[in-house]
């Protein structure tokens, strides 16, 4: 296993109180695998993966758990060790590619900077490597002298992937790399990404709120809800046999290109305020299958063959899936 995240807890200290944005999250990243982290906005995806890089906002604190990268705990690592790890072993593509690229520097200069500063390369080698990286991600090396604003959204995403790959890391963490792109560019960027992943045998954590992206490129999926892992397992298994009502809801809300002209089933309401999350199951206020006990006891992790779901009714999942397919199941659930 390249990376193990174990019972990770991350808090934000805010003027309104303590926000536990990540609350006991565990997942593994096998070498050479693509792991998708999926969930609605505000579920803690960015917080969890930024924890792995330790590049966190000032208000964030580790409050428990461990992140083991090749057996070494990132949470307790010294600054010096961490500095060696970043870029060379682990690279991070932040949520907006505009954040990855500095607007006042030419894109090529920024890549060369990382190669020289972090990789100890000479000027000439760095320049050649930058050109190589550009062609790897499908950009014309002539555009290395452009500024980020001269690039389209898709080109910026490609450039930030090139930047992440600069020092041949083992693990790339990409936060919503295709979210702002149109369907054509999204597909092209994902194809490039998948090709490079296979060619370089990269391990990848890909954050997205879109299960179609997970289906297209990921081997494993971690579904997050309100700071916790609602469901996790191999993508083919989780999408074919979702065991958590939240995953069923995400799947059913997805618009189809073919089939009847029907209403879609939204998941009503929104994720809870993490300043004061509901007791028991956090999905209960929006769950069509909630029972008495869901309001009182937090569900346990039901484990079966690498597929786990945080739901009291996970053992009835097959029956619930049929009910979940009906639009009516999802109407009038949430009070909000």
């Amino acid at each position: 296993m390249l990376l193990n995240v174990r019972d990770l807890v991350i808090d934000y200290k805010t003027p309104r109180g303590n926000v536990r944005a990540v609350d006991g999250v565990s997942f593994d990243v096998p070498a050479g695998a693509v792991v998708g982290v999926v969930g609605e906005s505000g579920c803690g995806k960015t917080t969890a993966v930024r924890g792995i890089t330790r590049v966190m906002p000032g208000a964030a604190r580790f409050a428990g758990g461990a992140i083991e990268f090749e057996g070494r705990d990132i949470v307790t690592m010294s600054e010096r060790e961490m500095r060696k790890l970043m870029w060379r072993e682990i690279a991070y593509v932040p949520q907006s590619a505009m954040n990855a690229l500095d607007p006042v520097w030419r894109v090529g200069k920024q890549i060369e900077e990382v190669l020289r500063d972090r990789g100890g390369m000479g000027k000439r080698d760095a320049r050649a490597r930058a050109a190589e990286l550009f062609s790897m991600v499908g950009l014309d090396a002539q555009r290395l002298t452009d500024y980020p604003h001269q690039f389209s959204g898709g080109m910026r995403q490609r450039a930030s992937i090139a930047l992440a790959l600069a020092l041949s890391p083992k693990l790339v963490i990409a936060d919503e790399p295709v979210t702002a792109l149109d369907v054509v560019i999204q597909r092209q960027v994902l194809d490039t990404f998948a090709e490079l992943q296979a060619a370089l045998n990269l391990s990848v954590i890909l954050v997205t709120h879109d299960i179609s992206v997970v289906a297209y490129v990921c081997d494993y999926v971690v579904v997050m809800y309100a700071g916790r892992v609602a469901e996790a397992g191999p993508v083919a298994e989780v999408l074919a046999n979702p065991a958590h009502p939240y995953t069923m809801g995400l799947y059913n809300a997805f618009p189809e290109l073919s089939g009847d002209d029907r209403e879609l089933s939204p998941i009503e309401g929104s994720p809870p305020d993490l300043l004061d999350p509901p007791a028991g199951c956090r999905f209960r206020p929006r769950c069509p299958f909630a029972q008495e006990r869901c309001a009182q006891e937090p569900p346990d992790v039901a484990v079966g063959d690498g597929h786990r779901a945080l739901c009291h009714r996970a053992d009835e999942a097959a029956a619930l899936r049929d009910v979940a397919k009906k639009v009516d199941t999802w109407t009038g659930v949430s009070a909000a």
Binding site: V184, I185, D191, D210, S212, Y216, A236, L239, A240, Y251
Partner: peptide, 22 residues
């Protein structure tokens, strides 16, 4: 454009889109 529409299906085609570039 039809082929580029994302679907939540692991068995979908990974054939490259029939159009190049941007």
């Amino acid at each position: 454009l039809v082929q580029a529409v994302p679907v939540p299906d692991v068995n979908q085609s990974h054939d490259p889109l029939p159009i190049k570039g941007g």
